[in-house]
């Protein structure tokens, strides 16, 4: 197709005159890899991405170091039960509870930000099948979160052990590596869950409220249930399922690490399947 749309034909026939026909714009089919490349450009070109990830890393590291330092200082005043329950791994990785809020909020925002601004129409205009966008964004955010939070977990752990002094451990300690990888994995799954939730709910306020409700409110509210019911509900909430993956000394009644992982994967799958179904059904 000859085109007047190309103003500066790269590599056009040299010489003056209208004989130099500009080459058609090179346009290739939409593929999953290209959608991924597009999603990467979108993710890195928003300042909120970097800011929120920095916040997640900072809370993860700061909490680990502060808990390490405080525990070391208070050691002489701790009772025997507290000493028995102490784990140098759990203590220095405890910041993940805060970091999950930043990671979750960013996951929701990556989707609802597009709905709020209308960008989603451009996104689905370029990729009208829609599903590749969901897959690419979830996969990309999973990769980014896992990479960033593995490093954050490692720094929190290693620094935290220094602050723990003589009560610290090293990477070879029981549960240390599992804890660090577990934290990164848990945060990754929460991030992907939040992306799915964003596509389901589409509004920033609604998405974040739902996420916080699930992560923060329900575990507390569940304690109001009759004790016999609690055992059937509480371990299956995402936060408690995650704790069972990470903790060296899990709370009583929690699932095993592998069962907790399965439950968490179930939550993520539910959110992604819901997102996929709604994406196909609803108008953009």
């Amino acid at each position: 197709m000859s085109s007047i749309l190309t103003t500066e034909p790269a590599g056009a026939v040299p010489g003056p005159g209208p004989a130099a026909v500009p080459p058609a714009v090179q346009v290739r089919p939409v593929t999953p890899a290209r959608v991924l490349a597009s999603e990467w450009i979108k993710m890195r070109s928003l300042r909120s991405t970097a800011l929120t990830l920095v916040a997640a890393v900072a809370t993860m590291v700061a909490a680990g170091w502060i808990f390490g330092w405080a525990t070391n200082r208070q050691w002489s005043t701790m009772g025997p039960e507290q000493v028995a329950a102490f784990s140098p791994v759990d203590t220095t990785l405890a910041g993940y509870g805060l970091a999950q809020l930043a990671v979750g909020v960013l996951g929701v925002l990556l989707v609802t930000g597009e709905y709020a601004t209308g960008m989603v129409r451009a996104t689905f205009g370029a990729v009208p099948r829609r599903l590749p966008v969901l897959v690419a964004r979830a996969a990309l955010y999973a990769g980014v979160t896992f990479a960033v939070m593995s490093v954050a977990g490692l720094i929190a752990f290693l620094g935290g052990q220094q602050f723990l002094g003589t009560h610290g451990a090293d990477l070879a300690a029981a549960g240390a590596l599992r804890g660090i990888v577990g934290v990164a994995g848990y945060l990754t799954l929460i991030g992907v869950f939040a992306v799915g939730l964003g596509f389901c709910i589409r509004s920033t306020a609604g998405g974040i409220a739902t996420l916080f409700g699930l992560l923060l409110v329900l575990p507390g509210l569940g304690l109001l249930l009759p004790a016999s019911w609690q055992d059937h509900v509480l371990p299956y909430l995402p936060s408690n399922a995650g704790a069972s993956i990470i903790s060296v000394h899990p709370a009583a009644g929690n699932l095993s690490a592998s069962a907790g992982l399965l439950v968490l994967l179930g939550w993520v799958a539910g959110a992604l399947i819901g997102a996929a179904v709604l994406l196909q059904r609803r108008d953009a």
Binding site: V25, Q26, V27, R28, P29, V30, R34, V35, A37, S38, E39, I41, K42, S45, M119, A122, A126, V127
Partner: peptide, 14 residues
């Protein structure tokens, strides 16, 4: 620029 670049990437446009 990044808006257009992201759209272009879906079709591998230079």
């Amino acid at each position: 620029y990044h808006h257009l670049l992201a759209l272009a990437a879906t079709h591998s446009i230079a």
